[in-house]
């Protein structure tokens, strides 16, 4: 008998639907047929583990070749836990973002804003034994994205996390408090529940802020927890 302890289904409203028509390019891309319901197996309950030896940390995005990037230096610090508030230790977090002017160092980004030779926009950090992570960067700028008339993405940093199993995979975005563009952003508003949406907004944190150096933001992340009881068949 293989007793499999799977991961809990999402709390209703806490996750966006792939069918989010205000985000126009979803319309031809979201599956029209219902997803196949299939209980988790070892394929979903296990997942990749990344070694810093193969994936070296890159925790300071604000400096390239010893020279400082343009913009407002920030420190982002937070804790990764599961839904049972247990720390997710030694897990890899990948981040990527636009520069201070709102431009990605990417051939597809044609926004008329300057590139910064001292900003690449990609980072990688591992959580410690208690789930804490921290990196230094530059506050990303807003940029236009043509989804609708006068559409601008709010300032955001992209996140990629894996956690314990393929089922805990998370791709998300961290936003900044007080951003007026959040009210108009279809990607942010694809999350139906207001509280769940607002948990994507980091908060300014004076304790993370370093004097004479950088503003601090706190952004905690919660990955799915396991079901309470192992369910064999």
């Amino acid at each position: 008998m293989n007793e499999i302890n799977g991961f809990r289904p999402p709390v209703p409203g806490s996750q966006p639907s792939n069918d989010s028509p205000a985000y126009l390019t979803t319309r031809q891309r979201h599956p029209l047929r219902p997803l196949l319901a299939f209980p988790h197996t070892v394929t979903e309950t296990t997942g990749p583990q990344f070694s810093p030896a193969h994936f070296p940390p890159m925790t300071d995005l604000s400096v390239v070749d010893g020279k400082a990037a343009q913009g407002e230096r920030i420190i982002v610090r937070g804790r990764v836990t599961d839904e049972d508030d247990r720390p997710v230790a030694h897990t890899m977090i990948e981040v990527w973002q636009a520069n201070a002017a709102g431009r990605y160092r990417h051939p597809q980004d044609t926004h008329d804003a300057p590139l910064d030779p001292h900003f690449r926009g990609d980072g990688r950090v591992f959580t410690d034994a208690d789930g804490w992570y921290q990196y230094t960067s530059i506050k990303p700028g807003a940029y236009p994205w043509r989804n609708h008339n006068n559409a601008w993405r709010p300032n955001h940093i992209h996140y990629s996390l894996f956690g314990a199993g393929f089922a805990t995979r998370l791709i998300t975005q961290m936003y900044f408090p007080g951003d007026p563009l959040l009210a108009f952003d279809p990607i942010f508003h694809a999350v139906p529940d207001e509280a769940a949406r607002n948990r994507l907004v980091s908060r300014f944190d004076l304790d993370v802020t370093q004097p004479e150096r950088a503003l601090g933001y706190r952004f905690d992340i919660v990955l799915r927890g396991r079901t309470a009881t192992p369910m064999g068949i």
Binding site: S14, P16, E94, H106, L170, I171, A190, L223
Partner: peptide, 18 residues
């Protein structure tokens, strides 16, 4: 108990980590 963080699209610029 906490609730898992919401997904957001990976978007067009994920090649920065590719």
């Amino acid at each position: 108990m906490s609730i898992a963080t919401a997904f957001q699209t990976i978007g067009p610029y994920w090649h920065l980590i590719e």
